[in-house]
């Protein structure tokens, strides 16, 4: 669920097809920097009505999904 929502947000943010985003995609290869990540995470917070802390460096979409899921399960 988090992956689909995140992929949709990332695709909107960078203007690409959602299908181009996989769990293995590196943020760097998508042209996404750390401020883009926090921008998308803030949009997800609004949608999921939760607070997410960005306290770890992530390199791939899958790692970002894991970080968000870990916080949501707390």
């Amino acid at each position: 669920m988090v992956f689909q929502k995140l992929a949709k947000k990332l695709a909107e943010h960078i203007g690409c097809e959602e299908s181009a985003i996989t769990r293995e995609s590196t943020l760097e290869s998508l042209g996404i920097d750390s401020l883009d990540v926090v921008e998308v995470v803030m949009e997800l917070e609004d949608e999921l009505e939760t607070q997410l802390e960005m306290d770890q460096k992530v390199n791939t979409v899958g790692e970002l999904v894991e970080l968000i899921e870990a916080q949501m399960s707390k």
Partner: peptide
């Protein structure tokens, strides 16, 4: 912390 600063600022 750039990400948390950004988030606090925008919010």
């Amino acid at each position: 912390n750039g990400q948390e600063t950004y988030k606090f600022a925008v919010q």
